[in-house]
Amino acid sequence: MAERIAINSASKLSEAINLITRMYREKKYLVLSLREGKDRTLDQNALWFALYERIAQMTQIGDVDDARRYCKLHFGVPIMRRDCEEFRDGWNRIFLHLPYEEKLRLMGECSLMGPDGFPVTRLFNRKQGIEYTDRIVADFAGRGVFFGDLLGEAAA
């Protein structure tokens, strides 16, 4: 039984403590993983998809999936390597030595990593997601890709 609770109030904290207590009494063994910060939002996911579509339309990078893989590798991986020691150590041990094309391939759907590819953006907290968006926009706006209509700005 996998449970996930975002604790953002005293009542949610109480709910989490009660759930942990109940699960422990039933199974006598639990594995917990905790982290600070808010989750990404569905709006953030939709925005990323729109950014990937625009990049695919306005550059020679390829299709939407190619744009997603590129962004995950070039912007997401550096954020996670900087912020998460476990991610950095795993990346350095398993992926750092791989050729660029293989790293890029593993960012998308593949038999080894599944339909979403190597987990990068799904590991982000809200702050990391915002930084990821900002890095994508800054880089591709510098290449002439217009995102203003997607971001609600006059120009980006």
Rank of each mutant, 00 (worst) to 15 (best):
E3L: 14
R4G: 15
I5V: 07
S9Y: 09
A10K: 15
S11H: 14
S11K: 15
E15P: 07
E15K: 12
E15Y: 03
I20Q: 08
T21R: 13
M23Y: 13
Y24W: 15
R25K: 13
R25H: 10
R25W: 10
K27P: 04
Y29W: 15
L30H: 13
L30D: 12
L30M: 13
V31L: 15
L32H: 09
S33N: 14
G37E: 01
G37V: 01
R40S: 09
T41S: 15
L42M: 14
L42E: 15
D43M: 03
D43G: 08
L47C: 03
W48S: 09
E53T: 15
R54V: 07
I55T: 03
A56Y: 00
M58E: 11
T59P: 02
D63P: 03
D63F: 01
A67M: 06
A67I: 05
Y70S: 09
Y70Q: 08
C71Y: 07
H74R: 15
F75N: 05
F75H: 06
I79Q: 12
M80H: 12
R82G: 05
C84G: 03
C84M: 05
E85C: 02
E85N: 06
E85V: 04
F87N: 00
F87W: 04
R88A: 05
R88W: 07
G90D: 01
W91D: 00
W91R: 09
W91P: 02
N92F: 05
I94K: 09
I94G: 01
H97T: 02
L98C: 08
E101R: 07
K103R: 10
R105Q: 05
R105A: 06
G108R: 06
C110T: 08
S111D: 15
M113S: 03
G114V: 07
P115S: 10
P115C: 08
D116E: 04
F118M: 07
P119Y: 01
P119V: 00
T121I: 13
R122L: 00
L123W: 01
L123A: 01
F124Y: 02
N125L: 03
R126K: 14
K127E: 14
K127F: 07
Q128H: 05
G129N: 04
I130V: 10
E131Q: 06
T133M: 12
D134V: 08
I136S: 01
V137I: 09
A138D: 11
A138S: 12
F140E: 01
G144R: 13
G144Y: 13
D149F: 03
L151Y: 00
L151E: 01
G152N: 01
A154N: 11
A155T: 05
A155K: 06
